[in-house]
């Protein structure tokens, strides 16, 4: 316990010093809120309107989770196909890279037109596209990059390709999968949030940040930013916890 405390207090201390300096700067220099609101103003808004913050986070978080789930599923299925059929790998990898290079800002208005803008669907699709790529790339690598000696061992034990997949390739890919999720989970929140800037239902974090800023409620806009950061962090921490539980061998020195 004392070890965990020791790990926690330095960042907490730094955060406190940083926030105090920020507060001091705003007060002493009399900086206007539209330039930089003080931490006390932001936190006042955050806790004052906590229910609003919470509901907005739930809305955007739901979009993010749906996109994360579907994007991960598509990434996993395609990674399995890419491992199994070299052709698929050669076809999909450049396509996936191309898709990942399309800026969501360009795609969002188009998808909003294609699907019902008042529904969540276009936002979930955007998030899916963002999430799919790191999952696909990392898991494919994890399935393919198996120690040659482990493959020979499996062959010497007369293992069928399906057994090799289940007993060797998939477990080998799990650390890669979690690395991808650690990137994809916070990214899914960002994607869900940004996709809200282009219209549709107004209850999400992205819409709220935009409308608060438009109404010169800068403290509240920043409070929503804080809520967004917390949502992204929660996503990341959940992935971290699941990884600890499901794959305790990741991050360890690998045995020879």
């Amino acid at each position: 316990m004392s070890g965990r405390l020791r790990a926690v207090w330095p960042p907490v201390l730094i955060a406190l010093i940083f926030l105090s300096a920020w507060q001091l700067l705003v007060v002493v220099q009399d900086i206007k809120p539209f330039l930089l609101p003080s931490p006390s103003l932001i936190l006042g808004n955050f806790f004052g309107d906590f229910t609003l913050m919470f509901n907005a986070a739930i809305y955007t978080g739901t979009t993010a989770i749906l996109g994360l789930m579907f994007g991960t599923a598509v990434g996993l299925v395609l990674a399995l196909a890419a491992q199994r059929f070299g052709v698929v790998n050669k076809l999909i990898t450049p396509l996936a890279a191309g898709l990942a290079a399309v800026p969501i800002i360009a795609l969002t208005p188009i998808l909003n037109n294609m699907f019902n803008i008042t529904s969540r669907t276009p936002k979930v699709i955007i998030t899916m596209i963002i999430v799919f790529f790191p999952v696909f790339v990392n898991v494919t690598r994890g399935l393919i990059q198996v120690q040659p000696v482990q493959l020979e061992l499996m062959r010497s034990m007369n293992a069928r390709p399906r057994t090799v997949l289940r007993q060797l390739r998939i477990p080998n890919a799990i650390p890669f999968f979690f690395t991808a999720l650690k990137i994809a989970a916070p990214l899914s929140v960002i994607a869900a949030l940004v996709s809200e800037y282009f219209g549709g239902p107004q209850q999400g974090l992205g819409s709220r940040i935009a409308s608060s800023a438009a109404n010169t409620a800068y403290g509240r806009a920043w409070a929503y930013v804080v809520a967004s950061i917390i949502t992204g962090l929660i996503f990341y921490l959940i992935v971290l916890a699941v990884e600890r539980w499901a794959a305790p061998w990741t991050g360890r020195a690998r045995s020879a």
Binding site: V149, M157, L168, R252
Partner: peptide
């Protein structure tokens, strides 16, 4: 196929999981 031999390599090739 009938597992009439066992094999060991320079690397232990154990599965971490």
């Amino acid at each position: 196929q009938q597992q009439r031999y066992g094999m060991a390599f320079q690397q232990a090739a154990l599965f971490d999981w």
